[in-house]
Every structure is written in C-alpha cells, then in structure tokens.
C-alpha cells in the first residue's frame, strides 16, 4: 500500500481497513509532527501532548485524511499546514486561559507552562518538520535495502554499506577503514569493498526515490519533491 492509498483509506469512514491505515499513518508521520512542535519551543512532554491532541482532534475527529485531495498538492504540505494551524490555536487557547480572570482576579503574568526554546536543535519548525520527514523516509529506505540485501544472500555487501555509509549517517560514527573490512570479511582487496559500497549507495538512492514516490501523486513529481525537500533542508541551514 502506498502512502497515498493509505491516506485515502484512512479518510474513508466506512472502510474496513480504516483503523489499520490510521494507525499506520500516525506512526509514520509522528516524528516530523513531534519535531515541528518541539521546534516551536515546547518541551518534549508538552510536544507529546500537543501531537496527541492533533491526532485526536484533527486526524481522527476532523478526519484530516478525508480532506486530502491528490489533485491539490502533497500530503506533506497539508500535514505541515494543519499542524501549524493547530499549534497556533493551541497557544491562543492557552493564552486566553491565562488571561481569563480567576476567582475575580487577573492571573499573574508568570511564564509557567509557556514553551521554552528547545535545546535539541536550532531548526525553525518548518525545517524541523522537513528534517524529520526526510529522516523517516531515509530510515524506511535503509530498512528496504537491508532486507533486500539479506534476502539475496548479500550479507557481506550489506555489512560494508552499514559500516561505511549507514552507521556514519545515522549514528555519526566514523566509517570503518576499508582495510579493516577487507580483512574482517576476507575480501580480495579495497576496490572490491568500495564497489560493494557503490552498489549499496545506488540501491539506497533508489529506495529513497521510491519512498518519495509513495508520498506524491505521480512518478513525474518525485524529482520535484526531492528538490523541494533538499531546498527546504539547505536554505537557512546553520
């Protein structure tokens, strides 16, 4: 099931698989939603509450997937705009509660409960959302390639890809030197290990494109969407 078919299914109230699709949709898009809210300055627990509220109020109650229209743009854009509106409403509600006189008195102007800047990142909310959106795509692409390589009996190739590319990307660790890998896996030479890495990198790039393809309306939008994501990640980058 592609992302779009999952979204359309989640929006159909009489679909027998709606509950499963909604569950899948929420799991898939939780990280970018959470990152967005955190980047507005909320603490982790507050962000968790807000995303849960967004899921309950907007995705389930107001049936956001039911309003998704393939002809009117990407689901990423709809989700991004919706969480933005939701959090603005949320903060307005909170401010209004703070201003409301309590027991005949105006509440003190303390800042308790107000969001504090996140210490996790310097991203603005849009960048945080995009970064986690791409990270989610990347994690899924990595899993696809890993499973495919293991299924094809290409464990050594996967080990090289993991040691030289995936672990440095995901965990920030330095790549293991080729010479160590050649010795560990009893390979012929460094160029053989490097060519394994190239095959893995190509497979991963294609898996990323396939993942992006699941979030857009048609295959000819994949390139534009990838460029758009790249632009959003790089503009105003620190």
């Amino acid at each position: 099931m592609t992302d779009w078919s999952m979204i359309l299914d989640a929006g159909q109230v009489d679909s027998p698989s709606r509950s499963a699709s909604l569950d899948r949709l929420v799991r898939r898009y939780w990280p970018p939603l959470f990152a967005y809210v955190r980047a507005t300055g909320c603490s982790a627990s507050e962000a968790n509450d807000i995303v849960q509220g967004f899921v309950a109020d907007v995705i389930l109650e107001r049936n956001l997937p039911g309003h998704a229209d393939r002809g009117r743009g990407r689901f990423r854009g709809l989700l991004f705009r919706s969480i933005g509106n939701y959090i603005r409403d949320h903060h307005r509600r909170n401010q209004s509660l703070k201003r409301r006189p309590e027991q005949g008195r105006v509440a003190s102007l303390d800042v308790e409960g107000c969001p504090t800047p996140s210490d996790q990142s310097t991203d603005d909310p849009e960048q945080a959302f995009t970064r986690h959106w791409v990270a989610t795509l990347l994690r899924r692409a990595i899993e696809t390639v890993r499973t495919s390589f293991i299924d094809q009996g290409r464990e050594v190739e996967w080990e090289i890809v993991e040691a030289r590319l995936v672990r440095p990307m995901i965990d920030g660790v330095p790549p293991i030197p080729y010479s160590n890998l050649v010795e560990r896996f009893e390979m012929r030479d460094v160029p053989q290990a490097a060519s394994f890495l190239v095959n893995g990198k190509r497979a991963l790039g294609q898996a990323i494109l396939a993942e992006i393809g699941e979030t857009v309306d048609s295959p000819d939008q994949v390139d534009d969407e990838a460029r758009d994501l790249l632009r959003l990640l790089t503009e105003n980058a620190p």
Binding site: V134, L138, M169, K201, A226, L230, L233, A237
Partner: peptide, 10 residues
C-alpha cells in the same frame, strides 16, 4: 546525511 542522501537520490 539527510541532504547528502537526497543529493545521491537526485
């Protein structure tokens, strides 16, 4: 890593 991976894909 995220921008790198998008660049390869492109």
């Amino acid at each position: 890593p995220l921008t790198d991976s998008l660049r390869w894909a492109l």
